[in-house]
Design a protein around this nucleic acid. Sequence first.
DNA 1: GCAAACTGAATGATGGTTCATTCATAATCT
DNA 2: AGATTATGAATGAACCATCATTCAGTTTGC
Lengths: 205, 205
Amino acid sequence: MPRTNRSGQSARSVVTDKREAILRAAIKVFAVKGYFNSKVADIASEAGIADGTVYLYFKSKEEVLHSIFDRAMSEFIEEGKREISLIAAPEDRIRKIAQLHLEKLGSDRDMAVVFQVELRGSTKFMQEFSAAGFSEYLDIIRQTIEDGQKAGAFRSDIKPIVCAKILYGALDEMVTNWILSKRSYPLAPMADEVLRIFFGGVMTV
Amino acid sequence: MPRTNRSGQSARSVVTDKREAILRAAIKVFAVKGYFNSKVADIASEAGIADGTVYLYFKSKEEVLHSIFDRAMSEFIEEGKREISLIAAPEDRIRKIAQLHLEKLGSDRDMAVVFQVELRGSTKFMQEFSAAGFSEYLDIIRQTIEDGQKAGAFRSDIKPIVCAKILYGALDEMVTNWILSKRSYPLAPMADEVLRIFFGGVMTV
DNA sequence: GCAAACTGAATGATGGTTCATTCATAATCT
DNA sequence: AGATTATGAATGAACCATCATTCAGTTTGC
């Protein structure tokens, strides 16, 4: 039962709303039960619609999962690029990336679970995701490191791409641990700890 | 058809062999198709036995996956502890851990895929795995860092546990990238690159 | 009143698990 | 030693619960 549009709200926005509702419901259901253990009926029920309605908006259960990734990733990349363009120093850019990464995932636990867990549930998904947004993200980090090397801020005896993977891996592990932790704590502040080691290393000077 | 026991080899070793065969087959099948997309029939076929035989050695498909983790992880931890006990300096111990981590996973791609991908396919598995071996592994790293801090080799303004997660996360990302990469390259040498940054940081001094 | 949106029961494929049966080998008997 | 019986590992066809997907009918919006 589409929401009555008192004003000029057209069918277009209703469609968007329902699509949105299905995606939100799917994120929640996937986060709790896992992709393979989630039934389409679960998603429909969570969204308060009939099973068949899901298929009016998505071709298949798998497409629902894909849509979740695509939307979240392109939003994230877009915001990231925008924020970064406002910052000059590579060092500060890296700091902003780390903060954004942890803020975004730390502010939506269900989404974080889907990203950290479901995305990695099959090499197939990982390959597809990798092709889609992940490699672009990694490349932004890589490029920033490279700029930092040219500017003399970062050591030049390390490969930028390896460096980018290390930072990503460290952040990623913070998120995974945060998800699995029984205790509840804010994720974003971990960025500082990660950066302190990433920038300065663990050895005493 | 049990192998004839010319000597004192009893049924015991036959049982172990077949269990082993099933586990090896499962690792291969899971690595290629993913846990949820693998049929028990696939595993049986790969092992050259009948479907039902799998259930003579394992309670369920899920127990097969669990056994893979348990065995591999306890072997790895055991070997790690042994090797580390021979080394005195915390810095060298960390180096050895990183090398072992990448050597082990780099020497068995199928096993690596199962560990990097299937293990993370559901929060349930992750929780169980976490309880089992992962937290012990992380704790070994943590303890080593702590020793290093006491010995004055590592900075004391960083939490050992966070530090351990960062190292683990970085190594883990190396493995994941190695798995997904189309190119084939040796994984173990990446340890040096990771350690250079982990120890010294990326900033110019 | 008709087109679009929605419903949810029915369908059909899938695949984990079971179990009646087979058969090679070991144990026992003569 | 040879014949007979017992054992239990192995088999694989069949069972049946589980969903993803479909579609004929209903409701809603204009």
